Amino acid sequence: MPLFMISFPSGEMQLDEGGLQAAADDAHAVVREAKAAGVWVFGGGIDESVRPTLVSADGREEEGTYPQTARLEGGYTIIDVPSRADAVHWAAKTAAACRCRQELRQFQDDPESLP
């Protein structure tokens, strides 16, 4: 089955006063539902308080990131579903819970990368 990534930038959430906890509760409900359906692989939010680093092949680490990913932040979910239509279904549930549109991307098929 194809793997999909559902994601959004943290600044896109449309929250009312005190709405962060309600969004978190709704998002956790979607997580539980996806786990129960057997489609959940992984999910989480980028810890924006920890700076990204670039790691070289020799293990050297330097602060910073690639220019095109300098604003990588927000929430990410990986699901394993039979079809793109199923992925859209879960992206819509996530959009409702997180109060913003979700970006949907499909991973390339690589059996060596699967759990």
Rank of each mutant, 00 (worst) to 15 (best):
I6H: 03
S7M: 08
V50N: 07
Y66V: 15
D86C: 04
E17A: 14
V88D: 07
Q102D: 12
M13T: 06
P9E: 04
Q106I: 10
D16F: 00
M1K: 06
G43E: 08
S113N: 07
A87Q: 03
E48R: 12
D47M: 11
P2F: 01
G74P: 10
P9A: 05
S56M: 11
V31D: 00
D58K: 14
W90C: 06
K35A: 09
A92V: 14
A70I: 14
T94Q: 13
G11R: 10
I78M: 02
A92W: 04
G11W: 06
T53F: 04
R101E: 13
E33L: 05
G18R: 02
E62F: 08
A91P: 06
D80F: 00
V31K: 01
E33P: 06
E62A: 14
V30T: 09
T65D: 00
G19I: 09
L114N: 05
A85L: 14
G11D: 13
K93I: 07
A97K: 06
E12P: 04
R99W: 01
G43D: 10
S83K: 04
T65H: 01
T53A: 10
A22D: 15
E33I: 00
E17I: 13
I78A: 00
F107I: 00
R99Q: 12
A24Q: 06
W40E: 04
A37Y: 03
L104R: 08
D58A: 14
P82I: 04
P111K: 00
A91R: 02
I46E: 08
D110Y: 01
A97E: 05
R99N: 11
E17L: 13
T65I: 07
C100M: 10
R60A: 14
R101T: 14
L104P: 07
A24H: 08
D25H: 04
C98P: 01
D86L: 02
S113A: 11
V88E: 11
A24R: 03
E63K: 10
G59H: 00
G11F: 05
Q102V: 04
E112R: 01
A85Q: 14
K93H: 06
A29P: 01
R51K: 15
V81E: 05
M1Y: 01
M5L: 07
R99D: 08
R101L: 08
M5E: 05
R71I: 11
K93T: 06
T69K: 09
M1P: 08
Y66F: 15
M1N: 01
A24T: 09
R60G: 14
Q106V: 11
P67L: 12
F4K: 03
L15G: 05
D25A: 13
F4Q: 06
I46V: 15
S56C: 12
L104I: 07
